[in-house]
């Protein structure tokens, strides 16, 4: 952690860490502690008086069926996004690992959606599935299916899932491909000599060996779906219709900024913080183990 050889004592290191620490204190630690504090308060509708109520806000949340619904929705949403984008990316990576000609070209053509902002991904998909004009709506219409995500909650959910998963394929593809290319070729060759075909080799050798990558990606995809998809939900559905796509992050924003329920919003923030802490710990424990392997 520290260098064996280092500089002698002086005030310099404090000056060096100062910018980072000051920003962390003002914009991270202080607001987070404020959220903790506010989650224990109830403010009246006009903001005139506040009352300290211990865990009343949390109790209210846990008995609130809307919050429970948002929780369930977020979990369904996150795992659908992770499964869809990881499944697609894994198949693509397996193919790209196999072909020799043009592997780099394929990679270039597949990784750029990483750079597209979630909001823009949302805008593209909402355009293609616009209930009156969308090109996919038209195609579905010619099969006799009427798509309208502004009325149908399940369709709205599907739309948000597609837009989120589309953007994430690039990222998963890159890591899966890197994982597969790190597998020693001799292992694969030995299996081929023993008569295992490509599918069998994938199931018994490649997939088990990249399982650390898969697990790591699962955690990161869940984090992505939990927090970074706010932009997609906000542009595509605004949590609607009838709260069908209201995920936790959107609810915090909506209750706090639009509904002005400060205590309730702060309590939700605290719960989200706990979720991030758990996910970060899982991610870091996994990284520790990966270091031991290699």
């Amino acid at each position: 952690m520290l260098k064996r050889v280092h500089f002698g004592p002086s005030a310099l290191p404090y000056l060096l860490v100062a910018p980072q620490i000051i920003i962390t204190l003002i914009f991270f630690i202080w607001p987070a502690s404020q959220a903790l504090y506010q989650s224990l308060l109830i403010q009246d509708a006009f903001g005139l008086s506040t009352e300290f109520v211990w865990f009343e806000n949390f109790k209210e949340l846990f008995t609130d069926e809307h919050y429970f619904g948002a929780f369930k929705r977020t979990i369904i949403f996150s795992f659908s996004v992770a499964a869809l984008s990881m499944g697609f990316a894994l198949t693509l990576a397996a193919m790209a690992d196999r072909v020799i000609k043009g592997a780099t070209t394929y990679r270039t053509l597949l990784i750029w959606p990483y750079a597209v902002a979630p909001v823009l991904a949302g805008a593209l998909w909402v355009f293609m599935l616009d209930p009156t004009l969308g090109i996919f709506t038209y195609m579905l219409g010619s099969f006799g299916y009427e798509w309208n995500h502004k009325l149908n909650g399940n369709e709205a959910m599907l739309l948000v899932i597609f837009a989120s998963a589309w953007k994430q394929v690039a990222y998963n593809f890159l890591f899966f491909l890197a994982g597969m290319q790190a597998i020693p070729k001799s292992l694969i060759e030995a299996a081929a000599i023993d008569g295992a075909g490509p599918v069998r080799r994938f199931i018994t050798i490649v997939f088990p060996l990249i399982s650390p990558t898969t697990f790591f990606l699962l955690v990161l995809n869940v984090v992505y779906a939990f927090f970074e998809t706010f932009g997609i939900v906000h542009t595509v559905t605004q949590g609607g219709p009838a709260k069908a796509t209201e995920i936790l992050v959107y609810k915090v924003f909506n209750d706090g900024f639009i509904g002005l329920d400060l205590g309730g919003s702060a309590a939700q923030s605290v719960i989200l913080m706990l979720i991030v802490i758990v996910l970060t710990v899982v991610q870091f424990r996994y990284v520790e183990r990966k270091v031991e392997y290699t």
Partner: peptide, 25 residues
């Protein structure tokens, strides 16, 4: 202590501290 303080920022994305950070700014 400084190292851990920096580490903690990983666990506090904007999304979970929207309102109080807005107030600070």
């Amino acid at each position: 202590a400084f190292f851990w303080m920096i580490f903690i920022t990983l666990m506090l994305p904007v999304e979970v501290r929207i309102l109080p950070t807005f107030e600070v700014v």
